[in-house]
Amino acid sequence: MSRSLTPVNRVGVEERAAALGRRSIKTTAKREGIRLATSMIDLTTLEGSDTPGKVRHLCAKAVCPDPSRPELPSCAAVCVYPSLVGVAAAALEGSGVAVASVATGFPAGQTSLKVKVDETREAVAAGASEIDMVISRDAYLRGDDRTVAREIEAVKEACGSAHLKVILETAELPTYAHVRHASELAIAAGADVIKTSTGKASSGATPGVVLVMLEVVRDHFERTGRVVGVKAAGGVSTTKAALHMLVLVKETLGDEWLTPDRFRIGASSLLNDLLMQYAKLDGGHYGRAEDFSKE
């Protein structure tokens, strides 16, 4: 099976993405940026050692990230493994924070389509309103786009009314051209959101990858008018990196995309850095990690 890739200028993409990270964002703009980034976080815990207690702590933190600063917005969602969706759904009921669940054999995706679909149905039934699926990189790297598309369509159907985020795991794709192609493939197959990474690979949401994906979304919107979201996940762990993402979004897709409905940041340690930087703007003194709870 042959596929035609739209070439992507690697140097140009990386140069532009890096240039957009060099802005000086201070005081009022930084404060607003931190608030916006906080509201876009999918607060994530995807460890084998996750327990209901840990997930409940995380949910409380997502609803009210810093009890001493109630003016800070809630996070967008809490992202957990399917087995903990019920716990998260109960903890977040009525809070406005969504429950997201990874599914489809996360993070490798090396299970059969039937298992993937069943896992998705189970997570949705337990209360997940957002599903983060991984594409089958095995099929994608073999060039079997049809299998990849069919899987996304099947999982989308299993999602019902739940939002589907499709993880491309860009660290395992060889070039930006493949990132672009896979993004287009996922969008055509019905993805509501395209997401960079699982957070389990060697690299995550690099600025270049995010820029390429944002451009695909922009091109698709201009062509069809359909809104697709983007989620940057993996490696976005500092306020500086998060603000860089917001600049990329604003300069590529404009202000309309600067909402949690259309752009998300998947992260766990980012939130504490945001809170620490926000406290610095308030208190004047530089903070320390142990002032903020880990969960």
């Binding site: 004047g284 003194h285 530089y286 903070g287 320390r288 990690a289 002032d291």
Partner: peptide, 8 residues
């Protein structure tokens, strides 16, 4: 100020 006021 930045050094002696640093919480860490």
């Amino acid at each position: 100020t930045p050094l002696c006021g640093h919480r860490d």
